[in-house]
């Protein structure tokens, strides 16, 4: 049985769902969780429910906001005090920024953005997408322990079973050291919605949207079904949407439960970024558009007719 530490990233004291996905997949290992600062009571209960034996809450003045150095220093000194074989995190904005620095501080390896992993006995191996998912490889980690792993949100899915842990909460005084790059301010995004990489449902628009204003119909549909709106590179390069909304090899790689592609032809670099979506609906006037090869449900039709109809139809049942 491996000793595993899971970094439970929080947003307003609520632990991010990817943490529970990782805990579920780790069932059977010796699991502890580390958070930065306090967590709410729901999160505390969930961590225990999915198998955390201990929850270490690192506390320090310089930890109220994220900083690569402050978080890495605090976690490195905490990890050095334990005997962990593996340290996991979600491959979120913070996880992807923090874990390389943290692992290098301990001269250890880090496998990033895995879509799956298994333990065979004590041997770990993971699935690492290359070229935004155009191909997959097996990754193994060697060298000094602990070994670091980040896991893509939504890839594992929520655990089907509970495996109750003690969930004992412990406060830890953290040493943050010298922080040279610190956050002065956070500017809120245009959207208050869940990020594309963590969204359950995505509605995406392509070149056929024709302009930025037309994204309104996608936003209306998204509001009805609780989706986040994305865009293809063609739409972003044409100025219809900001790059933060781009799905694909030079944008975000996503794996929602439902992906609705509207007026997206399906360039190879776009398909790479969304092909792992569980269910794909495509709407396009060209019956030969490559997007239809990946679609579970393809609708050959004009998005300006279909999307408002979809919105009305969903409203009837939701």
């Amino acid at each position: 049985m491996a000793n595993v530490l899971v970094f439970g990233e929080t947003s307003n004291q609520s632990v991010k769902p990817v943490t529970y996905e990782i805990l579920g997949k780790l069932a059977g290992q010796n699991i502890e969780v580390v958070t930065i600062g306090d967590i709410d009571s729901d999160s505390q209960a969930n961590l225990a429910k999915y198998g955390a034996a201990k929850i270490h809450k690192l506390k320090g003045d310089a930890l109220d906001k994220y900083s690569p150095e402050g978080y890495a220093n605090a976690l490195a000194s905490f990890i050095k005090g334990g005997s962990y074989d593996f340290v996991f995190s979600g491959a979120t904005s913070t996880g992807k920024d923090l874990f390389p620095r943290l692992s290098a501080q301990l001269e250890a390896g880090c496998a990033s953005d895995l879509t799956n992993f298994i333990f065979e006995g004590d041997n770990f191996s993971g699935t690492k997408p290359f070229f935004a998912g155009k191909c997959l490889a097996k990754v193994e980690i060697q060298g000094p322990k602990p070994h670091f792993v980040t896991v893509r949100p939504n890839a594992l899915g929520m655990p089907a079973n509970e495996s109750a842990g003690a969930g004992e909460a412990i406060d830890v005084n953290a040493e943050t050291g010298n922080i040279r790059a610190a956050i002065k301010e956070i500017i809120k995004g245009a959207s208050e919605k869940v990020d594309l990489t963590e969204a359950n449902i995505i509605v995406s628009g392509g070149r056929a949207m024709k302009n930025a204003e037309n994204f309104k119909i996608l936003n209306e549909l998204a509001d009805t079904i609780g989706a986040t709106v994305g865009a293809s590179r063609a739409a972003v390069d044409s100025g219809y949407a900001p790059h933060s909304m781009q799905v694909g090899q030079t944008g975000k790689t996503v794996s929602p439960t439902l992906y609705i592609a509207c007026g997206i032809s399906g360039a190879i670099q776009h398909l790479a970024g969304m092909r792992t979506s569980k269910v794909i609906v495509a709407i396009n006037t060209d019956p030969d558009a490559p997007i239809f090869t990946k679609a579970d449900y393809g609708i050959v039709g004009d998005l300006f007719t279909i999307v408002p109809m979809l919105n009305e139809e969903f409203k009837k049942i939701l």
Binding site: F130, C135, L136, K138, V139, Y297
Partner: peptide, 19 residues
């Protein structure tokens, strides 16, 4: 630190329904 092997294409989805 990392060893990569078994490079392979992702599994293809069965064809979907088209309307």
């Amino acid at each position: 630190k990392l060893k990569f092997s078994n490079f392979q294409l992702p599994p293809e989805k069965p064809p979907g329904k088209k309307f």
